[in-house]
């Protein structure tokens, strides 16, 4: 590992002042489960490492007037044991269950998972279905951006060096169905080959009155899938209908990525995982 200076600010203001001055040469570290790996591999060579893992301003999970707040410094273990999320963002909670390993969940944060911008990041599909906004802070103040604007490319974060992710504002939703599913090459410590998340509400007639869906590990950046959502909206979910939506989804995915060697698997597997995930609605 290249030598660097370690800085641990006492509070957010101190962190932002530091970033204001040295942001260009600084890498922010929280759980370190991606950053330390990259440091070891020499992928990143910062002058300063700014440790935000203890900033109180980045903590907490609360239902607030503007939405459901999840601090960037919240660990995956905290997400998994959160009763607020169980109630208001169950798919996010579920993704924490199969996230890497216990050791990693204990320190890895949701902010770090998003900022790393891996196309396989497990927290992103659940955040997308909740229309999550990213709350950003710099010495100039606070602003909010949709998640899709922050994750601008594979392992590329659109944020300026002076800015820090404080947390996420999710739209809480009262739904009857929600899930997160992923396909990995083994049952733990697995990188998502495909992940997906949805939440939905069935009305008293059995029709889908609300449906949000997101796909992970297939496209370079997170995105919305309005066509799939529109296809299902207002309809009674049948096995046929779900298969139809599944095929539409894989078509649209291929429109984005083109056909690659991995498409041989991903095309049917996306359909399969979608059907498997939505089957409980039938």
């Amino acid at each position: 590992m290249k030598d660097f200076a370690y800085v641990r600010p006492k509070n957010l203001v101190e962190a932002l002042s530091f970033l204001h001055e040295y942001g260009h040469d600084t890498k922010i570290i929280a759980g370190g489960t991606d950053v330390v790996v990259d440091l070891r591999a020499g992928v990143i060579k910062p002058e300063y490492l700014l440790d935000v893992s203890r900033l109180a301003e980045l903590k907490g999970i609360q239902l607030r007037s503007d939405g459901l707040w999840v601090g960037a410094g919240v660990t995956l273990s905290e997400i998994f044991s959160s009763e607020v999320l169980e109630c208001h963002a169950p798919a996010l909670k579920k993704c924490a269950a199969t996230f890497a390993s216990k050791q990693i969940r204990n320190v890895a944060t949701i902010g770090g998972n998003v900022a790393h911008c891996s196309p396989c990041a497990d927290t992103i599909p659940p955040l997308v279905i909740h229309d999550a906004d990213v709350v950003l802070a710099s010495i100039n103040g606070i602003r909010q951006l949709p998640l899709e604007h922050v994750v601008s490319g594979p392992y590329t974060c659109a944020l300026p060096d002076q800015e820090i992710i404080m947390g996420f504002i999710l739209k809480p939703a009262a739904v009857t169905h929600a899930d997160f599913q992923k396909i990995g090459r083994r049952k733990a410590l697995a990188t998502a080959r495909i992940s997906m998340s949805y939440m939905a509400r069935k009305d008293f007639r059995g029709k889908i009155s609300f449906f949000r869906f997101s796909l992970g590990a297939c496209t370079p950046t997170p995105r919305q899938w309005p066509m799939v959502e529109e296809l299902l909206a207002g309809k009674v979910p049948t096995e046929n209908l779900i298969w139809k939506a599944a095929r539409l989804l894989s078509e649209k995915m291929i429109e984005i990525t083109g056909r690659r060697s991995s498409t041989v698997y991903k095309e049917p597997a996306i359909q399969g995982l979608f059907v498997k995930m939505l089957y409980p609605m039938v």
Binding site: G32, T33, V36, D51, S53, Q103, N106
Partner: peptide, 15 residues
């Protein structure tokens, strides 16, 4: 009291 990978944590973070 929580299990962590010591290889992924900086020594300074033990403070």
């Amino acid at each position: 009291g929580r299990a962590v990978n010591a290889c992924l944590m900086l020594a300074a973070q033990l403070d």
